[in-house]
Write a protein that binds this DNA or RNA. Structure first.
Lengths: 186, 186
DNA sequence: CATAAGTTTCAGTAATTTCTGAAACTTTGG
DNA sequence: CCAAAGTTTCAGAAATTACTGAAACTTATG
């Protein structure tokens, strides 16, 4: 499992981006190697490819599995665990969004719901209003997300590719739908 | 600037979530305090409210400004710098998405473009294909994002609230538009 | 049940990131 | 130009997170 220069370039980039994406360097690199690989790989393949410790790879693979973005695969006649990444990239995107929502949004949604419940004292009136507004906004967005997430990939992609056409449809409906906004200011 | 229990609860949550959101604890807490505040606050208000060092607040405010999510405000007859968060939450969301795209996606887009350019050796053929596919996918998504980002907030929100109605429109168009997918070639 | 092939755990170390406090710097008004 | 009020910088301390290597554990097979 020596990596070609092409592979290395990609893999190192994923390692560097890791910290921005909220994952450890090795986790990003493991993912990158699996992403580029035609065939399923075992932990030792990754150790060799990346030159990191076996335990590091083991933990990184666990994390990737926790994220649901690598899959365990068993190879006929081999006792070792092998891993792959789904072929379908839209599937990958879906999972990534879902998992990030789970980690980065859902806990806050819960907290906002709780805070909103509390009967605010005089001094907290403004803050309570802000919390309420934020909670409503996030619910609106996650509601939209939930609807999209149930679409078949084909339709979702169709929509994404639609772009400008979508705009026109919205433009038409916007006149009809009552909008909740800070009164037209101009 | 003593924080009420209500404020504290919110602020501590933002601090804890910070690491998941890719910001330091104090950065998250500063933002939270500003978010809940009716009036603009100066650095020392935050020092007092959070019990952290002046320099920490200073750096945190710089980071928040780098993210474009707090604004410098000058108060009549006061030499100090004051800070606020935009009132309009959709504005905040736009900025957040824009900045995260800049940090988490754009560098990878550049890298993928470069890798795609390279003429792949025999051994890199599969990997090169994966890179190409990933590049196409991200361009499709950022293209869609660019279009949406130019919509006025009113229309954007109208669209998000539309949900189910949007589905029907897509369903109709999907039959008409040629879809690029695994099963259907050219 | 013994062994070998493989995986996981964990205590300690290394690396990185965040935070502090003091010093340096900037700006305004006299 | 000086003094006062404010802001920024930065070297080192503290805290957190990532990584290693060795030991413990698991499981398939003779």
């Amino acid at each position: 499992m020596q990596l070609s220069d092409f592979h290395k370039d990609f893999v190192l980039h994923f390692g560097e981006m890791g910290s921005r994406w909220g994952i450890a360097r090795t986790v990003g690199q493991c993912y990158a190697v699996l992403f580029l690989s035609d065939a399923p790989l075992c932990a030792d393949d990754l150790v060799e490819a990346l030159g990191v410790s076996r335990s590091n790879v083991s933990i990184s693979l666990k994390e990737l599995q926790a994220w649901n973005i690598v899959r365990l695969r068993h190879v006929q006649g081999d006792r070792r665990d092998f891993f792959t990444v789904p072929e379908d990239m839209w599937e990958i995107v879906r999972t990534l969004v879902e998992e990030r929502k789970k980690r980065e949004i859902d806990p806050t949604l819960t907290k906002l719901r709780d805070l909103r419940m509390a009967e605010p004292s005089e001094a907290d009136a403004y803050a309570h209003g802000r919390v309420t507004e934020l909670h409503d906004l996030i619910e609106t967005m996650t509601g939209f997300y939930d609807e999209l997430s149930h679409l078949e990939t084909e339709r979702l992609v169709a929509m994404i590719r639609m772009g400008a056409k979508l705009k026109k449809f919205i433009a038409g409906s916007a006149k009809v739908l009552p909008l909740k906004s800070k009164t037209t200011e101009g």
